[in-house]
């Protein structure tokens, strides 16, 4: 399966998850967006050596994933497969930051490893929250929410059109790509073939855009995209946003794991 087909499959599967009627889907999308942004800001506001202190925050994406009846394995796989820049950069931390920070008896862990662990936790939390947001909301509803939250319509219309035609153009690109591969005896594509191939795809994209424009005009398009879609904010959404924000604030201000650890170990260190 080509990269394009795999990517389109990802889009499809996340959208399929979002299309189901779950407790998460029933929440107003604006509430979910606001809460997720608050979450991300909370996570990144910790200092670089925070690891355990971040952990209580994991409850947010977990709870939402459960509310949305989201399957754990595919989402976790997405998380793990995203070999991100952040991890590669983070790997330098243990190399550069070698002062001991934690001590367990005779063994010590350098500060660099602690900050690297922090980077890993941040990555898991922030990216996990984004995935949960999209898998529990869906592209269309998300864009309506963004418009209601003040994002210019030019941008949200662009997102929706991009999403709509990603499948069509992606399928065209996949076909053209496969057709070339079948005639290439395993050789990678040379620039001499790349220019014309993508050039052709690009020209067809232009022609398609022209036809879509005609279809829009034929049904009365005057430059303004109108929609009947409404979002209904309820008390449940207010409780959702306020409740989670309070939790984030608590976790940010109080190092809960330290407290718990000390309590469990007794009063003396």
């Amino acid at each position: 399966m080509s990269r394009i087909d795999a990517a389109l499959g990802d889009l499809r599967s996340l959208e399929a998850l979002a299309a189901r009627d779950t407790a998460l889907a029933r929440l107003d999308a604006r509430a979910k967006v606001v809460a997720t942004l608050a979450f991300v800001v909370t996570v990144v506001s910790f200092d670089r050596y925070a690891v355990a202190a971040l952990l209580p925050l994991a409850f947010f994406p977990l709870a939402l994933a459960i509310q949305g009846e989201l399957p754990a394995k595919p989402l976790l796989r997405k998380l793990l497969l995203a070999a991100p820049f952040a991890v590669m950069v983070g790997l330098f931390n243990p190399l550069l930051d070698r002062a001991p920070m934690l001590a367990f008896g005779d063994a010590s862990v350098s500060a660099g490893w602690v900050s690297f662990a922090s980077i890993l936790v941040r990555f898991a939390l922030t990216v996990g929250a984004a995935l949960v947001l999209v898998a529990g909301t869906g592209m269309n509803t998300l864009c309506v929410a963004l418009t209601r939250l003040g994002v210019p319509q030019v941008m949200t219309a662009q997102l929706l059109f991009l999403f709509r035609y990603a499948f069509v153009l992606g399928a065209e690109a996949a076909r053209t790509s496969t057709a070339r591969e079948l005639r290439s005896s395993g050789r990678a594509m040379a620039l001499a073939a790349y220019g014309p191939m993508l050039g052709h795809l690009l020209l067809r994209a232009f022609e398609r855009a022209q036809r879509i424009h005609m279809a829009m005009l034929a049904r009365g398009f005057d430059g303004e995209l109108r929609s009947l879609r409404t979002l209904r904010w309820s008390t449940r959404d207010t409780v959702f946003v306020l409740g989670w924000s309070a939790f984030f604030l608590l976790v940010r201000l109080v190092d809960l794991p330290q407290w718990a650890g000390r309590a469990l170990l007794g009063a003396s260190p």
Binding site: L160, R219, R226, S227, L228
Partner: peptide, 15 residues
């Protein structure tokens, strides 16, 4: 070209 079937059918009447 609209995100859902009903939004697409509504496009003409809305315009």
């Amino acid at each position: 070209f609209m995100p859902t079937v009903e939004e697409d059918v509504a496009f003409g009447p809305l315009n």
